[in-house]
Design a protein around this nucleic acid. Structure first.
Length: 620
DNA sequence: CTAGGGTTAG
């Protein structure tokens, strides 16, 4: 086809090709100016609109502008509108230009206002969109559901709860309360502001709910700690009464909930669902599966998923590195990191969080220091508070307490309470009272003292037999009315999660469980297990509540596991607080006497017990 | 004279 023929077929040619070769369509457009006048008017409009839609370069835009500014075309609303959309939204996203252009439009319509609101919602100053949202009312233009949707996005981005509530009210005023998509955005907003109950209220008010709406609710619950509710929704939505089918996103967010809860059985069920419904190839789902299995203490399963993947990105590698790290396989984590480099996948900050935490959990001090150095120098990644946290943990556990303190002081980021708490934990392990007290003063300065901090302090004094100080701290806690978080352990059985809380005997089988625990302790004592009561948290809760006998929740959960599962089956327990040394010894002894593998998940990692050994000997 | 909207990985 010759060029002349091409030019004659200009419009259709551009329509067909703009997405394939933008430069070519621009070439044809501008080399056929003389032809253009002969074209029917409407075709020209169409052509320009098409060009604007595909325009991703400022120079092209300016060319079109000069071209149309001299013609009558510039007065056509559709051209103005297309032009504004082109400047305002990505990839051009030029807010200065779009503001100037917007001012030129004599009668901006709802769509034009929405374009501006949308452009600002994606910008660095999302709230500027409000001006247009209010502006359209002043000009007597009724906002449509999309106006509210875009300005809601702005509120979500800066977590403005007040702003979002105002929009919520206006949505009702404007009569848009049956717009399913808009309400989903609204739910997403409440979810993002960690306001699960309001998200739920919106959900309940929705006239009909599709899978996306369910997904938002599940994701909201999964992120805000209501993991159990999140999982029950996975089944609930399939109820014929609602009839929504979980899709790939549902699986993804549900898997996150499983990871949080340590709910292996449920996670495996979702894994099967994924394979049965043909979502198995999605990289994001595979990555989440790796994370889920890792966080349920099954690195081998995580690794199997990892091995089965043909495409692995940074997230994949980071997930498996984290998986190895939190399960005590520090060396494997480092090996995975090396392999990742061989495959030329550049690591990012989160990869290094995994590598560094692998070093800290496995006591690889030199390696940790080396990676910390390489991260900054070789990869130019500025350490975040998480990286520092790993380093403080690493140095602290290894006994380099003063160096850890120095590191915190030298940080470019402001130390948060978590990092001080990490050091406080190390002070307790190494019985470094003087530094521990200094750390507490920092926590007090941050006004961030939590019950757990007092407990650590208490344990530290107890470990050096300073009972006067122990009494002081206790008194202080009583005066301040500080409530300790009760220890809580969960164990999953046939898809049901059983929860055990210290001093709470509400479990229907509590009698049998206590009898079983008694029996176990007897057996373990014969094998040489000696109860250790240096953990003051233990005494404290029993003392405060007037119990003579008080069992840690993980012991109850383990006893329940022995009671309710066949011999040889692995017992998996998740615990909200740090495991204490006594329960650690208990599990270790049980793994050999009862020949059971025991896996306990702590706040941040796993303790694997097998045949009287554990994965974390000196670093519990 | 016709455009834009919701959920999602380590």
């Amino acid at each position: 086809m010759g060029l002349i023929t091409l030019i004659n077929h200009k419009s259709s040619f551009i329509n067909l090709n703009y997405h394939n070769n933008q430069n070519l369509s621009f070439f044809i457009f501008f080399s056929s100016k003389s032809q253009q006048q002969k074209q029917p008017f409407s075709t020209s409009v169409e052509t320009i609109v098409t060009l604007l839609k595909s325009c991703s370069k400022k120079t092209h835009l300016l060319q079109i502008h000069t071209q149309i500014i001299r013609t009558l075309l510039i007065r056509q609303q559709i051209i103005l509108t297309s032009f504004l959309s082109c400047v305002a939204l990505s990839p051009l996203h030029d807010l200065k230009y779009s503001n100037r252009f917007f001012a030129q439009i004599r009668k901006p319509d709802c769509f034009n206002f929405n374009t501006m609101i949308r452009a600002y919602s994606q910008s660095d100053s999302p709230l500027e969109g409000w001006k247009f949202y209010n502006g359209m009312r002043e000009r007597g233009i009724r906002p449509n559901p999309l106006s509210s949707s875009f300005v809601l996005k702005s509120c979500t981005r800066i977590s403005s709860l007040i702003g979002g509530r105002q929009i919520h009210a206006r949505i009702l005023q404007d009569g848009h309360q049956s717009d399913c998509l808009l309400l989903t955005t609204l739910m997403g907003f409440y979810a993002f502001c960690e306001n699960g109950s309001d998200a739920r209220l919106v959900f309940d008010e929705m006239p009909q709910r599709d899978t996306v709406a369910w997904n938002v609710l599940i994701s909201c619950y999964a992120r805000n700690g209501r993991t159990r509710d999140a999982l029950s929704l996975f089944d609930f939505m399939q109820n014929p009464e609602y009839g929504s089918k979980p899709d790939d996103v549902t699986c993804l967010v549900a898997l996150q909930a499983c990871a949080h809860l340590g709910s292996l059985e449920f996670g495996e069920r979702i894994h099967r669902y994924i394979d049965e419904h043909g979502y198995g190839d999605a990289t994001n789902l595979r990555n989440t599966l790796i994370a889920m299995y890792s966080r349920c203490g099954c690195v081998d399963k995580a690794f199997r998923v990892f091995q089965g993947m043909s495409e692995r990105n940074v997230v994949t590698w980071s997930a498996i590195i984290h998986g190895f790290a939190m399960n005590g396989h520090g060396r494997d984590a480092i090996e995975a990191f090396r392999e990742m480099q061989r495959m030329n996948v550049p690591p990012d900050d989160q990869t290094f969080t995994g590598v560094l935490s692998a070093c800290s959990h496995s006591g690889l001090v030199d390696e940790g220091l080396m990676f910390f150095e390489r991260m900054r120098i070789e990869y130019g990644i500025a350490p975040s508070i998480h990286h520092y946290g790993c380093m403080v943990d690493l140095m602290g556990r290894a006994g380099y307490l003063d160096q850890a303190y120095e590191l915190i002081i030298s940080m470019t980021v402001k130390p948060d309470s978590t990092i001080w708490r990490t050091l406080l934990g190390a002070c307790r392990i190494h019985r470094h009272v003087a530094l521990g007290e200094r750390v507490v003063s920092h926590l007090i300065e941050l006004k961030a003292q939590e019950a757990g901090d007092y407990v650590l302090l208490l344990n530290m004094y107890a470990s050096v037999n300073d009972w006067d100080k122990v009494a002081d701290v206790r008194k202080l806690m009583k005066e301040k009315g500080i409530q300790t978080t009760p220890g809580c352990s969960t164990i999953e059985l046939h898809g049901q999660v059983h929860e055990f809380v210290v001093d709470d005997d509400s479990h229907p089988q509590m009698k049998e469980i206590l009898a079983m625990l008694d029996e176990i302790e007897k057996q373990l004592k014969i094998a040489g297990y000696v109860a250790e009561v240096s953990s003051e948290l233990h005494k404290l809760s029993a003392h405060d509540k007037g119990f003579v006998l008080s069992y840690h929740s993980e012991k109850l959960a383990i006893a329940f596991g022995v009671l309710s599962t066949p011999p040889g089956k692995t017992i998996r327990v998740a615990k909200n607080l740090r495991i204490c040394i006594d329960c650690h010894n208990f599990a270790k002894a049980l793994s050999s006497v009862y020949n059971r593998e025991v896996v306990i998940r702590d706040r941040s990692r796993f303790h694997h017990f097998r045949e009287g050994n554990c994965s974390c000997n000196d670093y519990w």
